[in-house]
Simulated scan of single mutants.
Amino acid sequence: MARWTVRAIMRDMLPVLVVLTLVELGSGLVLDTFQGTLLRYPSLLVLVPVVIGMGGNLGSILASRLSTAVHLGLLDFDPTDDTLGGNALATVLLAFTLFPIVGAGAWLLQSLVGTARLGLGVVVFVAFASGALLSALAIGVTLVATYAAYRLGSDPDDVVIPVVTNTCDVLGVLVLFGVVRVVVV
Rank of each mutant, 00 (worst) to 15 (best):
V179Q: 00
L22D: 11
M54Q: 14
L118S: 02
V50Q: 06
L75E: 02
G85I: 13
P42D: 07
V123N: 01
P42I: 06
V113C: 08
F177T: 00
Y147N: 12
L66A: 02
N57P: 05
L171F: 12
G56C: 04
L75F: 02
D157K: 03
D32M: 13
L75V: 04
G153S: 06
L44K: 00
R40I: 10
T33L: 14
L66V: 06
A104V: 12
V102K: 01
L75S: 01
G114Y: 06
N57Q: 13
V124M: 07
V184P: 10
V126F: 00
A90G: 10
W107L: 07
D76Q: 14
L20P: 06
V126K: 01
T21V: 14
L62G: 04
Q35T: 15
S130A: 11
V123M: 05
L109G: 11
G53W: 02
L120N: 08
L133I: 12
L137D: 06
L22W: 11
V182C: 08
A90W: 00
A136R: 07
T165D: 03
A149S: 14
F99A: 02
L89S: 14
T167N: 08
G121C: 05
F34V: 11
P100K: 03
R65H: 08
D12I: 00
L31D: 01
G103V: 06
A8S: 13
T146W: 09
V175K: 01
G105L: 14
F128Y: 12
L108P: 08
L25T: 15
S27T: 14
V19F: 13
T68K: 15
G140H: 02
A136V: 15
G59Q: 04
L47R: 07
A69F: 04
L14K: 09
D155M: 00
T83H: 11
T167G: 13
T97C: 12
A132L: 15
L93D: 03
